[in-house]
């Protein structure tokens, strides 16, 4: 039962598929799709799901040390959301015929990619604010675009996620506003967090368009509607005024408003650093994987207990 692999070569079906994309149709799980479209979606969606899951780790680091109960409740709710986001996207990926267990195994084994931003450490409480404001802010720019992706289950997961990310961003911005207007050491802590998170946040959008072959293909298939550079520029344009409003400086001496393009021009990104972190040599790559594996192993007894309980209940029902 592999009609698709044969059909994938079928030029007529391919043409029909391309026409559907051009019309803006939503592609649904049971629809015919080129094998390459399916594979690229699995790659992109699973990386996205993994990022949500790993994204819990830098923030989870601060739950027990949140400065107030209000902040602690907010952070707990945010981290729980990230788990939910991971599940929405894994669920979307499963509609493409992959097993979630397989994807989770790849993450645990260290063979799957996830967003490089989560390999940076959260050194102070202000980092939690900077992540909510900048990292979630960047994610919203990307995910708002993906909410119009040609693959229905992915788009629908993004709509749901975008609603929740707005809470994350506001929470982060409130933390930064408070710290920036606080005591001089608090203000310095906020500025230090921005200094460390700004450039990695810009890297979240991925390589420049000319160095991103996947990006072009995903655009052609209507999965992405905008290029990495377009999204990055949009994020910069949105963020400059926000930083100014709360008295923080973005660490880029070349940041200037360009009257002609109506964009904020920014300095060069350190791509050597980006590739180092992507390839596994960021400050926390090993630690993140170790913690994720430990959490998975520590949860084994819960999964075993649930399985045993269900088996027992099933056998009691049969006997009755």
């Amino acid at each position: 039962m592999e009609p698709r692999s044969v059909a994938a070569e079928d030029p007529a079906r391919n043409a029909e598929f391309e026409a559907r994309i051009a019309r803006g149709d939503s592609i649904e799980p049971k629809d015919w799709m080129p094998e390459r479209y399916r594979k690229q979606l699995v790659r992109m969606m699973s990386q996205h799901a993994h990022s949500e899951v790993v994204g819990m780790l830098p923030e989870g680091n601060w739950i027990t040390r949140a400065p107030t109960l209000r902040r602690k409740m907010g952070l707990l709710a945010k981290v729980q959301d990230e788990a939910g986001h991971g599940l929405y996207i894994y669920c979307g990926t499963e509609t493409l015929g992959v097993d979630r267990h397989e994807l989770v195994s790849q993450l645990l084994a260290g063979t799957a990619k996830y967003s490089s931003i989560f390999n940076y450490p959260t050194l102070t409480w202000a980092d939690i604010g900077a992540i909510g404001w900048l990292v979630d802010g960047a994610a919203i720019v990307n995910q708002t675009m993906l909410a119009k992706a040609s693959y229905g289950p992915y788009a629908r997961a993004m709509v749901r996620i975008c609603k929740e990310e707005n809470f994350h961003k506001k929470q982060g911005f409130e933390i930064m506003t408070t710290l920036s207007a606080g005591t001089p050491p608090q203000h310095r802590m906020a500025q230090d967090a921005v200094n460390r998170w700004w450039w990695p946040s810009l890297m979240m959008f991925g390589p420049h368009d000319k160095d991103s072959p996947n990006s072009e293909e995903m655009k052609r298939w209507g999965v992405k509607r905008k290029s990495n550079d377009e999204l990055r520029q949009r994020f910069v344009n949105l963020t400059v005024a926000q930083a100014k409003a709360i008295g923080l400086t973005l660490p880029d001496s070349e940041l200037r408003y360009n009257e002609e393009t109506e964009n904020w021009d920014f300095g060069p990104i350190d791509w050597a650093e980006f590739w180092r972190v992507v390839k596994g040599d960021g400050p926390c790559n090993r630690d993140r994987l170790a913690v994720r594996n430990k959490a998975h192993d520590d949860g084994a007894w819960v999964r075993d207990a649930a399985t045993a309980y269900a088996a027992k209940r099933a056998s009691t029902t049969e006997a009755a």
């Binding site: 039962m1 592999e2 698709r4 799980p29 049971k30 669920c91 499963e94 509609t95 493409l96 015929g97 992959v98 097993d99 979630r100 267990h101 397989e102 989770v104 649930a306 399985t307």
Partner: peptide
Amino acid sequence: KSETSGVGRPRPADSQWPLW
């Protein structure tokens, strides 16, 4: 009769409980 998710493809043995 088929699954809403992953339909049209053979599903690998599910090791994380049934899908709902």
